[in-house]
Amino acid sequence: MTKILAVDDSNSLRQMVAFTLKQSGYEVVEAVNGTDGLQKARATQVDLVLTDVNMPGMDGITLVRELRSLPTYRFTPILVLTTEAGTEKKQEGRAAGATGWLVKPFSPDQLLATVKRVLG
């Protein structure tokens, strides 16, 4: 089953993302910040990472950078969930190695469309 790691310090958003993905038959691993996310990504190889940017402890951008430095995550799609519609955070995310982004607020349908697009 396709595994997706969802990293967000906001419980409600993370739960929404996880619920939406689970409903569509994905297996979801949840993490509450970058450190947690990195640990879980190391423990289980996932097929897609969705991460929030602003989080206490390790932020999303650092998580992307850390993941990309792992041999098993060099090509794994990583999407950053950002509220910033501006280009600054997107560029920062991409410079760190993110595949793309999803701009908050997004609906469950948008989330699924993007995930499907990335996972093919």
Binding site: S10, S12, L13, N54, M55, P105, F106
Partner: peptide, 22 residues
């Protein structure tokens, strides 16, 4: 930390349909 809190509220508010709050 203050920024992060505001940021999370904005993100959630948009997602859960509280557009005024967002």
């Amino acid at each position: 930390a203050i920024f992060r809190a505001a940021h999370s509220i904005k993100g959630g508010a948009g997602t859960f349909g509280f557009s005024e709050v967002a």
